[in-house]
Write a protein that binds this DNA or RNA. Structure first.
Length: 618
DNA sequence: GAGGCAG
DNA sequence: CTGCCTCAACGCTCC
DNA sequence: GGAGCG
């Protein structure tokens, strides 16, 4: 999400989707736009056009259309955004009040407008719209509903959405407003594919089920139509649903249907060109999602073995469905590298086997960046009631806020994908587990160079390593993901946070004494004087660790990477491990060098005696 | 990112 | 019917 | 006691 600043300091948010070479479309979201339907349009259009979407929700607190921020000013802002995108002229689509702005754009800057489309279903009876139409001497007939492009051709609309990897399309009554709850007026039309299959067998019904239970092996005779979510290569259908018998078909007519690849039958179906007054000539593949990236339609949502044979349970009708809805996969989270939210989700799903051992049973805090690394962020500890029922949480009492907090526990790849879909970039977890919340599994010394020379971090980390080895404390190292290093010492839940903090402080003090020129344990930034801060203070109740393999919300999408100590050499550059190459490194190694930190139980009393000896000797 | 709710 | 709000927190030091 | 720090 980029933004332009207007002359009076109001921020105008906009988003650019689609290929730069495609015909440009300026979409202006107005007060009458509904959230979901409009977003859907935005992505449908991005298949064929370069969509520049303006969002006046970020325009500030005084952006009421008839307040000091006038419709005319909004129209000027729209032109400013076109300029910022280097676009001379565009097809302009306006939603509700955005339609009003669009019309002003067309009147004031006709040379910038190739065509004008007004989307007004959402606020057909809005008094402002009524006022506007009268003021501009227009009537309803001048307004075009974008969904009308699909009218009478739901198949084309569904094919288009399938081609884009969308879940489906939303159909609504023209007169019905947006409401957050389900209603008869807003129907989600899923684009799940269907195919005809010959029945080879069935299982008896279980429990209270009528008729048949599941279908599997006998001489093929009957044909059924089945809807399914996906058909993994060499495996059974996922989420198959019996639709109807096909008495009109024989088993021989059941050829292999086109596999559901998410790319549909190619270009042309669900064509939106009719909305505009000029044909679209760019016929290159119009799929916005990178085909190498995660696709919610074709990629399995669990880790079941894809090589297994179909069995009765796989064909069970109404099998419990774990819904994992992934949204806005094309949204750019790292503008410089054009890394999308879809790629972030794909990374976390792929890295799940490596990261999950660290997250098991640990209260997890989300650090959410719904608009990517340049947008606003917020922390989230308390998970709301509407999270999917399969996501495990643990309820802890917060002394500070005097209420219960429902922390999420990330158990599996789906859980990771879910939190990533919420815009969580780094994953933060507690040092202790639900089984023993006041006893941490590790102590951490965070080497944070900040204003110190980067190259001082390595010798100091090695000094901590040598000291720990000497007092027989196991110790492990990972990059923080930014410029520092994290040294982790396993505690095996044998001591309190206060004791862990004291241990980390003692180690910090001893290393500071060895290298007073390079290291400091002083918490006051002003007193650090360009030295590396050995941060021992993160060992406390509720303090968080950036989990190994977490992505950081900074340019380059670096990840926190566990290292072998021999890798900690002077020219170590923590930035070399990032979202796009971390998986290759992990796959190339047999073991995770930090993993033992989760299980080891060193003799802490003996180590403390040794540390005291060091303190005296120094 | 998404539900709740004031106006 | 729309826009806006909310979404964390510990232990320490400095002022 | 409140703001700042990570």
């Amino acid at each position: 999400m980029a933004y332009a600043r207007t002359s009076d300091g109001i921020r105008v948010h906009y988003e650019v989707l689609g290929r730069a070479s495609a015909p440009p479309v300026l979409m202006i979201q107005g007060l009458g736009a509904d959230k979901h339907g409009w977003d859907m349009q935005r992505y449908v259009f991005a298949a064929k056009y370069r969509v520049i979407a303006l969002d006046n929700r970020g325009a500030g607190r005084s952006d009421k259309p008839f307040g000091h921020y006038s419709l005319e000013q909004m129209a000027d802002d729209a032109i400013a955004v076109l300029d910022a995108c280097g676009v001379d002229s565009a097809h302009v689509i306006g939603a509700s009040m955005g339609g009003a702005i669009s019309q002003i754009v067309a009147v004031k800057y006709p040379e910038r407008v190739r065509s004008l489309t007004l989307v007004c279903t959402a606020c057909r009876n809005h008094p402002w719209r009524r006022e506007l139409l009268e003021g501009l001497d227009l009537d309803d007939a001048d307004m075009v509903d974008v969904p009308a492009a699909f009218e009478g051709d739901l198949d084309a609309a569904l094919a288009s959405s399938r081609q884009l990897g969308l879940e489906g399309v939303v159909a609504k009554r023209a007169s019905s407003p947006y409401r957050s709850t389900r209603s008869r007026d807003w129907l989600k039309m899923k684009s799940d594919p269907e195919a005809d299959f010959a029945i080879c067998g069935y299982t008896p019904p279980k429990g209270s089920r009528n008729g048949i239970g599941a279908l599997h092996w006998i001489e093929p005779e009957l044909v059924v139509q089945v809807r399914y979510r996906e058909w993994p290569v060499d495996s059974a259908l996922r989420f198959p649903v019996f639709v109807r018998l096909r008495p009109d078909k024989t088993p021989h007519e059941c050829g292999m249907p086109l596999r559901h690849t998410g790319e549909g039958g190619g270009d042309g179906e669900g064509d939106l060109a009719a909305v505009f007054d000029e044909p679209v000539v760019d016929d290159r593949p119009a799929i916005v999602p990178d085909p190498d990236l995660f696709d919610p339609v074709t990629d399995p949502v669990d880790d079941t073995d894809p090589g297994r044979l179909p069995d009765a349970s796989a064909l069970e009708v109404d099998a419990p469905i774990r819904e994992l809805r992934l949204t806005r996969l094309h949204k750019v989270f790292w503008p410089e590298e054009q890394i999308t939210k879809g790629e972030l989700i794909e990374y976390y799903r792929a890295v799940a086997p490596a990261i999950l051992p660290y997250l098991k049973d640990r209260p997890t805090v989300l650090t959410r960046y719904p608009d990517g690394i340049t947008g606003e962020m917020f922390f989230q500890k308390d998970m709301p009631g509407w999270i999917p029922p399969w996501l495990r949480t643990t309820t802890l009492w917060s002394e500070h806020s005097q209420r219960e907090i429902h922390y999420v526990l990330v158990d599996d790849a789906d859980g990771l994908a879910y939190v990533a879909n919420l815009g969580s970039i780094p994953i933060h977890c507690w040092a202790s587990r639900t089984t023993s919340l006041e006893k941490p599994d590790w102590a951490i010394v965070d080497l944070d160079p900040k204003n110190a020379p980067r190259e001082w971090v390595v010798p100091l980390a090695l000094a901590i390593h040598a000291l720990c080895d000497d007092v027989k404390l196991p110790n492990y190292v990972k990059t923080s993901g930014q410029s520092g290093l994290h040294v982790l010492i396993p505690l095996g839940g044998q001591c309190t946070f206060e004791q862990a903090r004291t241990l980390a402080y003692l180690i910090g003090l001893l290393v500071e004494r060895q290298h007073p020129d390079m290291a400091t344990t002083n918490r006051n930034p002003a007193a650090r004087g360009g030295r590396v801060y050995l941060d021992w203070g993160q060992n406390a109740h509720g303090q968080l660790l950036v989990a190994p393999y977490s992505v950081r919300p900074v340019a380059g999408a670096p990840v926190s990477m566990p290292l072998e100590w021999p890798e900690v050499v002077p020219d170590l550059d923590p930035k070399v491990f990032h979202l796009r190459n971390a998986l290759a490194r992990i796959a190339a190694r047999a073991h995770d060098p930090c993993l033992p930190v989760l299980d080891e139980r060193p003799d802490l009393a003996a180590a403390l005696v040794e540390l005291e000896r060091h303190a005296k000797d120094g």
